[in-house]
Amino acid sequence: MEDKTNGNDNISQVLTFKLAEEVYGVDIMSVREVLDFSSVTKVPHTPDFMVGVINLRGNVVPVVDLKKKFRLGDTERTVNTCIIIVEVVIDDESTVLGALADSVQEVVEFEHETIEDAPRIGTHLNTAFIAGMAKKDNGFVIILDVNAVFSMTEIGTYTGVAAELAAGQ
């Protein structure tokens, strides 16, 4: 609480979650809620990492499997599997999306100084997705840039798949 006087500008609150035993994080400001994994409707003619759509209180929300997207293998559905609902900006419009996570950990506060830029090598990820890395306990938290992860060029890569399939008929 005493930090309030310093202003929150210096503090980042990060929701951490696990993908294939590694800890990732997203800025809490872009997280709307976390849901238990329920039935997901697969949409045909979409790439593997698009798990499908779910019903979020009457609205239809797409869900992305980050593990598949980052090529970390398949997500096994367990009791801990969660869907993190995030609000991202796609083409200057705010959109609600879901991201599949093996398990959700906790909310951690980091001071800005402790967050470092992404290393150029040594991660499985395209560094454009990474907002920064922060030390926690004995390991690292990879803080994702949600807008980059879900940007249109990234999830829109399946354009043409449908056309190919249709032509194949």
């Binding site: 409707t41 949409v43 003619h45 239809v60 797409p62 083409d91 999830i155 449908a162």
Partner: peptide, 27 residues
């Protein structure tokens, strides 16, 4: 009719989705 949203704007064989009575989604 519910729109699938921007993420699926390039899908051309599905025009939208609808929520069924049991809460699941039909395309």
């Amino acid at each position: 009719i519910k729109s699938l949203g921007k993420a699926f704007k390039d899908i051309d064989c599905i025009s939208g989705a609808s929520v069924l009575g049991d809460g699941s989604v039909a395309l």
